[in-house]
Design a binder for these strands. Structure first.
Length: 295
DNA sequence: CATTAGAGGCTTATTTAGGG
DNA sequence: CCCTAAATAAGCCTCTAATG
């Protein structure tokens, strides 16, 4: 068949496959669920291929539907982008990026101004959250996430080595010689990363000598680092996040022992079923370049 | 929450009628 | 005789209401 199927139906199918819900897709298209259901049906009829599996109160894609959706959505993105190029040739484009609070505060935000000066046409809209990303349901172009690099349905770009190392203020650093000395010190924890101290102490062979649970706990690593800067105790830091403070002498790393978390580290995630926009490509290259020079 | 049937509204295609 | 415009027919889309 060299003819295009009904384009309206195709549009409906793209929305349904993306949201995996007829009702939500219908809202998005400003029509009723019944109308969308019919459109999908006529599309299936003209193609002669089933695209959706109708389950009880929910739907899913068939194998063919999944493949078709991937292709269709890319074409749609092409149309969208062509339209954007045509209508707002000079307007700024927005890039919605999600990161963790600590990553954003300690690393991304300080460097974002350099990105802005170099790419004045791209506006980065930064949000912070611990929740996992779902590119299908959320209006997000990219996310910085912690993980092992294995995500389904997303492109993952490894950003940096995740190396754990204890840090503290310079004067506090003089009071300890070996890991076991931490026994009498305050350990600073983050709720989001509860195992880091135990992990490091085990690597330093000091898990029997120091209670990994003692000390003070903060909601984010950024808070724990701030407490360390104030001389409140020892934070177990991800090294690239405190590099600037170490270089400036505001923090010190009193021990040589470090733990490389290997592939469990930070990645830039982008949806695999969408074409990468030009602005995202720029942002991705900039982001990866930042780590090439520091790592 | 998805699907279906039937009704109504709108668009497009086809036919028909009347004027140049 | 041809062309235009009204009338009619056909098709499509979306809605409501009811069902699974």
């Amino acid at each position: 068949m060299d003819r295009l199927p009904p384009l309206n139906a195709l549009r409906a199918f793209e929305a349904v496959a993306r949201r995996l819900s007829i009702t939500i897709a219908a809202e998005e298209l400003h029509v009723t669920p019944g109308a969308v259901s019919r459109q999908i049906r006529t599309l299936e009829d003209t193609l002669g291929i089933q695209l959706l599996v109708r389950g009880h109160r929910q739907i899913s894609l068939t194998r063919a539907g999944e493949d078709y959706y991937r292709a269709v959505t890319k074409s749609m993105d092409g149309l969208r982008e062509a339209t954007v190029r045509l209508t707002r040739r000079t307007k700024r484009t927005q890039l919605k990026v999600r990161a963790y609070t600590t990553f954003a505060m300690r690393w991304l935000i300080p460097r974002l101004s350099s990105f802005h000066t170099a790419n004045s046409g791209i506006e980065v809209l930064l949000t912070a959250s611990l929740d996992p990303v779902d590119f299908r349901r959320e209006d997000i172009d990219g996310a910085i996430r912690l993980g092992d690099g294995k995500w389904s349905g997303t492109n993952a770009y490894r950003l940096v080595s995740n190396i754990l190392v204890p840090v503290c203020s310079p004067d506090l650093g003089k009071k300890v010689r070996k890991p076991a000395d931490l026994d009498r010190q305050v350990l600073l924890h983050s709720i989001a990363r509860p195992d880091d101290w135990a992990c490091w102490l085990a690597a330093a062979k000091a898990e029997k000598l120091v209670d990994a649970r003692s000390g003070m706990t903060y909601q984010s690593s950024a808070m724990a680092y701030a407490a360390a800067l104030e001389g409140q105790g020892f934070a177990i830091a991800q090294r690239f996040l405190v590099e600037d403070d170490l270089a400036a002498g505001k923090l010190v790393a009193p021990f040589r022992q470090a733990v490389d978390m290997g592939d469990f580290t930070y990645y830039l995630l982008t949806p695999a079923d969408r074409n990468e926009s030009a602005s995202m490509a720029t942002f991705r290259k900039w982001l990866l370049a930042q780590f090439e020079t520091t790592a």
